[in-house]
Design a binder for these strands. Structure first.
Lengths: 335, 335
DNA sequence: CCCCGTCCCGTGAACGTTCACGGGAACGTT
DNA sequence: AACGTTCCCGTGAACGTTCACGGGACGGGG
C-alpha cells in the first residue's frame, strides 16, 4: 500500500494530500476543517474522513503565517518550584488566557547562564517576553533584538525595557511598627546571603528600624530555602540571643525559621515573632499562620502581561509610576 | 516622515524592508541575522543597523514553516497553584528543555468546561499535548484530531491515547503496615469529597486495612484544600473519636489536618499520626515533617514528555506497563 | 429563451522566511 | 592571456495554509 511515487519518505501529510484523497480541492478541505459554510454536508464528511484516515494535522506555521491573529508571549522564571514564581506564573497565565494569548514558559533552573540561551531561542517563538532575569541589561538587550520585554521585580535603566517595581518600603515600615507595638525592641532580620549588593528589603528594614530607634544591625544571611532559613535563624540567635522578633527576606526563609523555632522549643509568637515577605499562600498553611509583608502577586503578573500587551500593539505603555506593586503588612498568628 | 507609499498601515516590517533599507537582498539580510558566513563584515553591520533601526523581528511562522526543526508541546493542568501540578509542570518543563522543546502551558482554572476550549485552540499551536483532564475521552478525541495526547494520572480506554498510571497500592499498604507497626489500630482516612466514584486511593486503603484486620470504615470526605483537610479532620474525629492515625487523599489535605491537629491540641505523632499522599516538597516544610506515600513527580513529568515525544516522532511508544509511577512510603516525623 | 440568484467548488495569489543554486568580481596560478 | 579559487551576493523556488475572486450547475421568474 505504497502511496504516491518516490521513496516513502516521512513527509508531512499536507492539505493537498487530503484534497487528493477526497477528490476535492485544498480550499474545500480548508472549509470542511474550519467549519465554514459553502460546503455540502456529504462532501464535508468525506473530507473529514479522509483527513482522519491520513492522520492529517494542519501546520500551525502555515496557518499562523497567513492569518496573523495569535499572539504568544514568553514567560521566563528562575524556578517554577519556588512558590513565589509559581504564583506569579499562575497569575500571568490567567491574564494571558483572558486575552486569548498563549504562554510559553521557560524555567532557567536558577542558572543565570541559561537566561541568554533561553532568550536566544525564544526570540523566534514569541511576540514578547515577561520574566525575572538576573543578567545584565545590555546582554538582555542584545539577545532580545527589539522584542518587548517586561522585567519583574527589578529596576531598569534602558528605555527599551519596562519593569514592574516592587515597593515594600511602606509595608516593611508597617511590619516593624507592628512588632514595636507588640513590645518588641530586639528585632533581627534574615537577609539573603548573596553578598553582591545589600538587598532593598534590608534597606527598608534598616530605615524602618532606625525610625523606631531600634538597632538595625542584628542581621544574618540565609540561603534562599526553608533549610537555609532554619540555619539562618540558628546563626542569628547564636549571635544575638536577645532577639524576640525576626523579619525575613521572604516567606520561604520565614517558613524555615518558623520550623526551626519550634525545633528549638521557642513558641511562636510568644517567644519569637516572625514576619516574612511576599505573602505567599504557603504562609497560611503554617500553624501559626505566617505574618507577611504581602505582595499582590496577581497584580504583579497582571501588570506585566498588560504592559507587554501594550508594547506589542503599540498602544501607549503604562508609565513607570503605574508599574508598581506595593507590599502591605498582612498580620497573622506568627507575630 | 511617512515611509513608503500607501496609507501608513501598521504593516509588519519584513525582511524585504530591511533589505531595501540596507541596499541588499533578502538572503543577505538572512545571512546577517542568522550569523552565517559568506557575508562581509561591513555589510553585516549595515544590515544589523538597518534591522535595529526598523525594529525588525523575523516572523516565527515563516521561519518555522521553512525549517521545521522546532517542536512545541502543550501542557494542560487544572491549577498551577496546586503544588502537585506545580511539581509535575516543573518536571515536564525540565525534560522538555533538555530536548530543546518549547512548552505552552494552559491552566484551566479547575473548570472542566475550559478543557475543550483549550484543546481546540491548542490544536493549531502545538505538536502534542500532555495534560490532566477530567472530561470524557470521546470529547478529548474529538477536539484533539489526531494529535498525540498523553494523559496524566488517569486510565485510558481508547487506543489513541497514552496515559501515565499512578500505582499507589503497594505504597498505601506500606503506610498502613507502618502505622500498625507503631501500634495503631484505629486508622481513619480523609478521602476526597467528590462522590462520583469511590477514589482509587480509598480502595487501596480499604484493601490494606482489611489485610491487617482493621476496620476500613472510618472515612470522612474532605474538600481538596488545607482548610478542607482541617474541617475534614474535625468531622472525622467527631464521628470516630477513637482514631489515632489518619491517612489522607493527598498532601494538601494532610497539611490541613496537621494544622488542625495542632489547633485541637493533639500533638503529632504522639496523639495522632498523619500520612499524606503525593510526597510534595511542601510536606518537608511542616513541623513535624509530613510522612507521605510519595510519588516521583519528576518521573511522572519525565515519562509523559518522553511518551509524547515518541508519539510525535513515530518511534515505538512505551508500552503501558512502563508508563507507570509507583508510590512508596516516605516516613517522616508525622507518623 | 434569457436572465438572475443561490449553492458549491476550484484557482491564483499572498503570507515571510530559508534553501539550493548560480554568477560576478577579485586574485592568484599556469 | 586563459583558467581556477575564493569571496560575496542575488534569484527562483519551496514550505503549507487561507483569502479573494471567479465560475459552473441548477432552479425559478420574466
Amino acid at each position: 500500500m505504497v502511496s504516491s511515487s518516490g521513496p516513502d519518505s516521512a513527509r508531512r501529510v499536507t492539505i493537498h494530500d487530503v484534497a487528493r484523497s477526497a477528490g476535492v480541492s485544498r480550499q474545500t478541505v480548508s472549509r470542511a476543517l474550519n467549519g465554514k459554510d459553502e460546503i455540502e454536508r456529504s462532501t464535508k464528511q468525506r473530507v473529514l474522513d479522509a483527513a482522519r484516515e491520513l492522520g492529517y494535522r494542519p501546520s500551525r506555521f502555515a496557518r499562523g503565517l497567513v492569518r496573523q491573529d495569535t499572539t504568544t508571549i514568553g514567560l521566563v522564571i528562575p524556578d517554577l518550584r519556588n512558590p513565589f514564581f509559581t504564583e506569579v506564573a499562575a497569575s500571568a497565565l490567567e491574564c494571558a488566557r483572558a486575552r486569548g494569548w498563549h504562554v510559553v514558559v521557560y524555567d532557567t533552573a536558577d542558572r543565570p547562564a541559561e537566561e541568554l540561551g533561553t532568550l536566544q531561542v525564544i526570540g523566534s517563538q514569541v511576540d514578547g517576553v515577561v520574566g525575572y532575569f538576573s543578567c545584565a541589561e545590555d546582554e538582555l538587550d542584545r539577545y532580545t533584538r527589539g522584542m518587548p520585554l517586561v522585567l519583574i521585580g527589578r529596576e531598569h535603566r534602558m528605555a527599551r525595557f519596562s519593569s514592574i517595581r516592587i515597593d515594600g518600603q511602606e509595608g516593611v515600615r508597617e511590619a516593624v511598627a507592628h512588632l514595636v507595638a507588640k513590645g518588641h525592641t530586639m528585632i533581627g532580620m534574615l537577609d539573603h546571603d548573596n553578598r553582591a549588593e545589600p538587598s532593598l528589603r534590608r534597606e527598608w528594614f534598616t530605615a524602618a528600624a532606625l525610625g523606631h530607634g531600634i538597632d538595625p544591625g542584628r542581621v544574618a544571611g540565609a540561603e534562599q530555602s526553608a533549610d537555609g532559613g532554619g540555619a539562618g535563624l540558628r546563626a542569628l540567635l547564636a549571635a544575638h540571643p536577645e532577639i524576640t522578633a525576626v523579619f525575613t527576606f521572604n516567606d520561604i526563609v520565614a517558613v524555615g525559621a518558623l520550623r526551626e523555632a519550634r525545633r528549638l522549643g521557642r513558641s511562636v509568637p510568644a517567644d519569637l515573632a516572625v514576619i516574612g515577605f511576599d505573602g505567599l499562600q504557603l504562609g497560611a498553611l503554617m500553624e501559626p499562620p505566617l505574618s507577611s509583608v504581602a505582595l499582590d502577586t496577581h497584580r504583579l503578573g497582571s501588570l506585566a502581561v498588560e504592559q507587554v500587551g501594550r508594547l506589542l500593539t503599540g498602544a501607549d505603555p503604562l508609565p513607570p509610576e503605574d508599574l508598581e506593586v506595593r507590599a502591605v503588612l498582612r498580620p497573622a498568628g506568627s507575630s
